[in-house]
Write a protein that binds this DNA or RNA. Structure first.
Lengths: 233, 233
DNA sequence: AGACATCGGTGATTGAGATCACACAGCAGT
DNA sequence: ACTGCTGTGTGATCTCAATCACCGATGTCT
């Protein structure tokens, strides 16, 4: 939770190009009202059903967004990456947060108070449009999540969908179809709505069919097409 | 598909109070670029994966929003009522529509082109804020939908949740706990992600336990609390 | 080291719901 | 009347994944 020097902070805004589509004057005004902080893994930015305080911009790191049932079970909506904005819907509509945001790995997060957000949105249509675009991206990815969850009864299909989705997200770096597996089986289960055990079993099945390989925490997908053929099944 | 006289149209905007939170000048500008039309049941405003054209404001009637799987199965996201705005996410982000919008009962719908929407959002922060609020409402209701779908394994719990949700939506008119059942069992199944037969069976079970009564197309819920006790189970 | 926690792997059992296959009611149109 | 068509009601069967129970592997504290 060490505070970063100011120089480092402003470079992060530029580095991530968060406000790339905004006029420089507006961007400066935004950076002026924003408060940047470092968070450790496990820290909670906001919790489901809390009254809204403002929006959070992920500058670096990863944040887990989830909702939870009365019986304690959890559903992970998505993992937010650098550049994403959280809590927009709640802040704009003045409602409670609909999900819980928990830090997954040490992260830099900028915060903007609800009052500042609303004031600046009224003032600068450009900024308001930007906020809406962020929200609409969250909305789209949530819709995709629903499709993946509901429109495939078999758990293997859901997992296949999840993996293919990860391939798309990841930059096609050196070796294609290779990625770090940052989630436990339990968490993967919470993403696709199944139990931990079935995730293990399906992974085992995929390995047997040579659809995936696991070396330590590295996941290799040698044959993306084969995996995709499970979808639509 | 008969066109309404202009007088009737403008009265609909006022009647529904769609732009109640906007300065009158902005509201007039919006009504100027909007195109209002009547649609019959079954008409499709836009389909999943179509390129975006603009946003639709429901002035009167009901619109079914759904996504569909490759195998033809369908999931209904929600039924939009008068006052709601559709296609915002797609229009703002320039992406494809994420869902299909089909008219459920004869409706009046206003259309605004994407270019007009974006131009007026940049121009009037107030309008941009309004758009964002509409979108955030859609987002919230979608999140609630997910919770209802995923965080309850038993199908009866899902159905109970759906019915209670309908009670909340409906105005507490003359007799409380009474509503028109505008959906078929098949459609209800598509809303909670189960088969038509299970819906029938669960309804039968609920009747047996005196949790609901059905007279023709009227659904009576004499004891809301009993129904709620099924939730959380 | 040892103790403790978290994570991954596997078998056996079980139940909820999908699916298939009918039957029947209501309602439109000819 | 007779024919379709759409929506509802019910039984029989079967499959997939939840659940329980246990074990081994790998960390990580003190």
């Amino acid at each position: 939770m060490t505070t970063q020097p100011t120089k480092n902070r402003s470079s992060l805004w530029a580095e991530e190009n968060v406000f790339r589509d905004l006029p420089p004057a507006v961007a400066r005004e935004l950076e002026a009202v924003a408060i940047t902080n470092s968070y450790p893994s496990g820290a909670v930015l906001f919790a489901e059903a809390q009254t809204t305080r403002g929006i959070f911009v992920v500058l670096r790191g990863r944040v887990k967004l989830s909702v939870c049932a009365s019986d304690g079970r959890t559903l992970i909506l998505r993992i937010a990456q650098a550049g994403e904005v959280l809590g927009v819907a709640a802040a704009v509509s003045g409602r409670e947060y609909e999900a819980t945001a928990e830090i997954q790995e040490p992260s830099e997060i900028a915060f903007m108070r609800q009052s500042d957000v609303l004031r600046l949105m009224r003032l600068h249509g450009e900024f308001a449009l930007w906020v809406t675009q962020q929200l609409s991206q969250n909305y789209s990815s949530t819709c995709r999540e629903i499709r993946n969850l509901m429109l495939s009864d078999s758990a293997s299909e859901k997992l296949a969908r999840l993996l293919v989705g990860w391939l798309d997200q990841n930059p096609e770096s050196k070796h294609p179809g290779q990625m770090k597996l940052a989630l436990t089986h339990e968490e993967i289960g919470q993403m696709i709505g199944t139990s931990r055990e079935t995730v293990t079993r399906i992974f085992a099945g995929f390995k047997k069919q040579h659809l995936i390989q696991v070396n330590g925490s590295t996941l290799v997908i040698p044959n993306r097409v084969a995996l995709e053929s499970l979808i639509t099944a």
